[in-house]
Design a binder for these strands. Structure first.
Lengths: 290, 290
DNA sequence: CCATATACCTAACTTAGGTCAGGTATTTTG
DNA sequence: CAAAATACCTGACCTAAGTTAGGTATATGG
């Protein structure tokens, strides 16, 4: 345990030292970090001044000053919001967009260099994902998403891919009871995606069947985000929404190849019941009364 | 590849955001980060002003000001060095030592909290080690060490442990030709330890046998530090020192269970030769003329 | 419709961190 | 032994970042 603490602290020191270097990639273009961060946030689609402030964790007065500075340099323009004339919306000018692209190139080059120096980039990436997830544990957000959208697609592809490895005889979506997307959209159900810094790291579907009954489907957590209690959070959120939708009975099916899932259900008030569908990939069935 | 870059950049953002929190553990005691870092560096045995400057990456004038500030607060005292009256040596006062201990406790608690929140701390630690090694790639130092000292012991224990897993029939040091420590001390030989931020992450022994012949023994690199070319650096350093010691012929033995080592030797100018000892764990033998 | 809240702004100030020019005491070197 | 180099110091100055106090325009709720 003592050794463990030493190792964590070594990591912290390494990271603190390295961040100096990361920041300098921004300073490298002769602009203070604050302004550079604003350009990047705007470039990534955060155009409301309030959203910018929130994202960058900056006070209103400092934000104003930073924006005036960038305006003076001809990199951004602010216009009054059409919805609410008190609000302002910022966008990059042509010169600002060019700056943004330059920063993007710098960041990408730097990221590439980090990988290039290592003999096993896949291992390094997996380790970085894991560390990033743990560091960002408190910043993992769970939001409703379109079950046919990009984020959902990303999660589901990863989910099917994983099942095909873990199930003894593989997994073929077309043979499973694929939930129709429309059943995972309000008011019948919902589809939730967990994101860590915009990267999807988990999902769950609530598939409404009418008569106060719904099924939990497609519970998945990215390998890098496991161990931080994310599946519990996803399930809790799905349950909360189920109650909102006046659903009285939740059901789900699972497979013995996924013992962690079964454990979670048993620990969170689910009761094992008899088979209620003919999905060839399911061998355990659970129910929870809300 | 595109996905890889995204993941690295996500890691960088997570780390940048987290470092703010790491720093605040220092700010939490009402002292600016700079002063806190000085207290910690002194507490960890860096007492020369020049060493402090180098370690913290700070200019002479700023260092002076920080030290004067800490002196005014009664936390440190500076005395003129006995070896060189231009130099100064800093040490913590009683109050300073108490502050240092408080920072240590804070850091340890924080490290513990980071691990406590995770279901598989060992995996997390391994990932953190790997990331720290990659970030600290350029800061891995190789230094001569006492082959009977703590650092050497740490490395050798890890080395034997690893061999016992990798060799088909295990590994028992007492049956191997254990190099006598005295043979790995100047002027006959040398023992090198690689450290990343003080944590030993690799070693190699040069065991002098007289008549211009020496053997390379105990080449080991910690799993977390693999892939960054450390074994090459260790071997190059050992070779450089061998030349300094007027050694003309280097030899080594290895085992087929360690294919990466054999690969390294073949790539760096070693020639396979006939068996030159009766070590039961050796099945390949190499030589290099300097 | 008016009091209050909200969204953003400006000006003045503070702190941390860093640079620059120059100074003193000591050691090293030709 | 004198000139040059070294180690540290001081004071003046700068920038980035953050805070405080107050101001203006717009939206909103009783």
């Amino acid at each position: 345990m003592d050794d463990a603490i030493k190792r964590v602290r070594r990591f912290n020191r390494a990271v603190t030292a390295a961040v100096g270097a990361l920041d300098e990639s921004f300073l490298g273009r002769g602009r203070p970090l604050g302004s550079a961060r604003v350009i990047n946030a705007i470039g990534h689609g955060r155009t409301d001044v309030a959203v910018l402030r929130e994202y960058l964790g900056v006070e209103t007065s400092l934000m104003s000053r930073l924006l005036r500075g960038l305006e003076d340099d001809g990199l951004v323009e602010t216009v009054v919001s059409t919805q609410d004339a008190r609000r302002r919306v910022v966008h990059l000018t042509k010169a600002g967009a060019a700056e943004f692209r330059a920063y993007e190139r710098l960041s990408n080059t730097q990221a590439k260099a980090m990988l290039a120096g290592h003999a096993k980039p896949e291992e390094l990436l997996a380790a970085m994902d894991l560390v990033a997830s743990v560091l960002g544990r408190d910043r993992v957000t769970i939001e409703e998403a379109d079950p046919r959208g990009d984020a959902a697609r990303y999660c589901l592809d990863a989910y099917y891919e994983e099942l095909s490895h873990r199930f003894e005889h593989g997994f073929d979506v077309s043979r499973s009871r694929d939930p129709v997307a429309a059943q995972m959209v309000r008011p019948r159900g919902v589809f939730l995606v967990a994101r860590s810094d915009d990267l999807p790291v988990g999902c769950v579907g609530l598939k409404g069947g009418g008569q106060g009954v719904a099924e939990i489907k497609r519970l998945w957590v990215a390998p890098s985000a496991r161990g931080i209690g994310l599946s519990k959070r996803l399930m809790a959120d799905a349950e909360r929404i189920a109650r909102e939708l006046s659903i009285k009975t939740l059901r789900l099916d699972t497979n013995r190849a996924l013992p962690e899932a079964k454990q979670l259900y048993l620990k969170t008030g689910w009761k094992e019941i008899d088979r209620f569908n003919d999905d060839p990939y399911a061998d355990s069935f659970f129910e929870k009364r809300l």
